[in-house]
Design a binder for these strands. Sequence first.
DNA 1: TCGTCTTTGTGCGTTAGCGCACATACGGTG
DNA 2: CACCGTATGTGCGCTAACGCACAAAGACGA
Lengths: 245, 245
Amino acid sequence: MAAIAEKEPVRKNYLLACLEGEEFKRVFKALEPVEFELGHVIYEAGDKMDYVYFPTTAIVSLLYIMEDGGTAEIGIIGNDGLLGVSLFLGGDSTSNRAIIQSAGMMCRMKPADLRKEFKLGGRFQDLLLRYTQALITQISQTAVCNRLHAVEEQLCRWLLLSHDRLDSDKLVMTHDLISNMLGVRREGITIAAQKLAARKLIKNTRGTIEVIDRQGLEDASCECYEIVNSEYNRLLGRGISRTFA
Amino acid sequence: MAAIAEKEPVRKNYLLACLEGEEFKRVFKALEPVEFELGHVIYEAGDKMDYVYFPTTAIVSLLYIMEDGGTAEIGIIGNDGLLGVSLFLGGDSTSNRAIIQSAGMMCRMKPADLRKEFKLGGRFQDLLLRYTQALITQISQTAVCNRLHAVEEQLCRWLLLSHDRLDSDKLVMTHDLISNMLGVRREGITIAAQKLAARKLIKNTRGTIEVIDRQGLEDASCECYEIVNSEYNRLLGRGISRTFA
DNA sequence: TCGTCTTTGTGCGTTAGCGCACATACGGTG
DNA sequence: CACCGTATGTGCGCTAACGCACAAAGACGA
């Protein structure tokens, strides 16, 4: 594990951290760290993807853009996962945009290296597939949540998902950006954020939302957060060592 | 291909129809046809899955049930796909219910057989992974559609997706059931269906909706149908022969 | 043919969220 | 420190969809 010191941040990505021995060495050699700023677009809908990305400190938002300009987020990817499942699923592109929601680092890998390692069918493949299912759960829950829950509950869910993937309690994020993610009006977020602030769950300042009462936020959230979260743990937590072969 | 005659309907499933030679023979041997009635629950949220299912004439609906009893569909699976991606993704269960939306046949396969064949990394694996991406697209589009589009547009989308997976123009389906799928009020479906009937796009009788003007329905639908549809074609259409290795 | 159950139709009042139009306030820059 | 662009706060009227209550009309068996 001497090599880790060189590109230390690699281990901050959960999937990469699960690898060991020769497998880790091979993957590690193929990785390249890159830094991203808030708002940077990694790829647009329909773009052929050039890399798969393993976030270490950055957070990525998967955003759909409709014909009329309306937007809605379908998933959040942090250091618990990877961006670019299409590259091993076989599509090479998706119909959404991937955009940096929180500045930071990601490790990228070329599609050819990814596929080569994936084809070996070891732990790496297992992890990637399990993560894919976790992502499906997240997207599904977003779909249901969009239909059935109030904006305020959804804001809680969104804040929690982001907070989990962040070192800090401060989310650098305007109401306007959040409204794009949740697919609602900017004013709707302002109102909801005010209510949460009144209940001392968050602190609401210009361009930043600070999480004050994490537990309170969880209580105020719809069930969707917890479902997604526990499914991530089930799929990628402790028991991860077993491959399904 | 002599064996096909025995279990002829196998070829009605698109994924199975794409297999050839030895690979097809192995998969074919592991298949077992089963018939299902409308409303039958294949598995509940959290259930360990006993089989993977390849629909030939049946249609399956993936339904989320919330704590408060609210429901919403996240995807429709017909003879273009398979039920149980979790079995090769590694989760063995999902947090939704799979329910028969249209009576008919499916071919089922034991998880062990599925995984064994999947691990071989051939066309079968390629197809399953590509289908997974198509399913992700469908779920994503549902999420966005739930947020941004009107019930009437969504009803069109839903009718089209169902119609595509059906031999007949007649959908045996009550407004109440559809409302569960779309996560809206029953009355909302009644109103929307009336409007579509007034425009001569569908015929609305007790317990059945008949598609009259397919093209008209597509025009009345939101863009979501077309996006999902073309993504299915892109991922699983003609060019399917290339494996990504 | 009658009675019953299910499905569909209709009519309220209610509400969450929208769209628009501003007012205010923060915070970096010159 | 004054200025200005961006972010947030607030107040409308509007609309889609909700929740509820009940009427009408198919379907089907006795």
